[in-house]
Computed example of a mutant assay.
Amino acid sequence: MEKEAKILVVDDEERIRRLLRMYLERENFEIDEAEQGEEALGMALATDYDLILLDLMLPGMDGMEVCQKIRERKATPIIMLTAKGEEANRVQGFEAGADDYVVKPFSPREVVFRVRAILRRSSATAYLRTDTVASHTILVFQDLTIDHDAHKVTANGQEINLTPKEYELLYYLAQSPDKVFSREELLKDVWHYDFFGDLRTVDTHIKRLREKLNKVSPEAAQMIATVWGVGYKLEVPK
């Protein structure tokens, strides 16, 4: 039977790698393992994984640095595993490019849930494909263009390099311009979390999205508007 997805599990504790492998293989995922940061980085860049489970505290190069270096080259979804549950560490992980986090000690079932939630609508291969199809779904705004079939976002004629989750968030907002979405709605519809998840996840991804757009088009960045006390929307200039 064909495997559903290929996942890299990175943790310096063998028992955690073994536990995750057992649960993920039961779900028909193909698993590779790494126990050090440098090893994980090399594997992540050499292989097109569908998702990476990455421990924050690793010997040598830590998970934060591994995540940043992967992000320089690839948009592979990354879930950070961390014993540090403090908000500052989570936000730092998101800013490094992580799509999600799981705090140790964790339920293996929760990890499987989060893996499936991220893989459901995004994968590195789907995000990076640029094949031409007969009919494109393209959303065109004054300062922003989203080619959904190619998963390509451009502003001022320059392509913006987004992670899968950043892209999903932007595309979700762009499908309903000027409609305000609460953070709870975004967490449920973009992350597919009905009962897991931290609202700061949404805030941090919005912040990263604005920063990336702002580098090439301040006008495009300003389209992602905060509606205080409610949530966010993609605001179309009148």
Rank of each mutant, 00 (worst) to 15 (best):
residue 5 A to C: 03
residue 238 K to R: 13
residue 68 Q to W: 02
residue 213 L to G: 03
residue 22 M to P: 01
residue 145 T to Q: 15
residue 128 L to P: 04
residue 228 W to Q: 05
residue 135 S to F: 05
residue 84 K to V: 05
residue 235 E to V: 00
residue 38 E to H: 08
residue 166 E to I: 01
residue 238 K to I: 02
residue 12 D to S: 01
residue 95 E to S: 07
residue 29 F to A: 00
residue 48 D to E: 15
residue 127 Y to C: 06
residue 191 W to M: 11
residue 26 R to E: 15
residue 67 C to S: 04
residue 165 K to D: 08
residue 9 V to Q: 05
residue 171 Y to H: 10
residue 102 V to K: 06
residue 154 T to I: 04
residue 198 D to M: 09
residue 190 V to K: 05
residue 195 F to Q: 08
residue 90 R to F: 04
residue 62 D to N: 13
residue 217 S to P: 10
residue 136 H to S: 13
residue 98 A to R: 01
residue 211 E to Q: 11
residue 141 F to M: 12
residue 111 V to S: 09
residue 210 R to F: 07
residue 91 V to C: 03
residue 177 P to M: 07
residue 191 W to K: 02
residue 115 V to K: 03
residue 32 D to H: 08
residue 189 D to Q: 12
residue 112 V to M: 01
residue 217 S to C: 06
residue 7 I to E: 09
residue 113 F to M: 09
residue 229 G to I: 01
residue 43 M to W: 12
residue 37 G to A: 06
residue 110 E to L: 07
residue 227 V to S: 07
residue 202 V to E: 02
residue 170 L to G: 07
residue 58 L to Q: 11
residue 159 E to M: 05
residue 186 L to S: 09
residue 178 D to E: 04
residue 178 D to H: 11
residue 238 K to N: 11
residue 30 E to W: 15
residue 84 K to G: 05
residue 6 K to N: 11
residue 5 A to F: 10
residue 120 R to S: 08
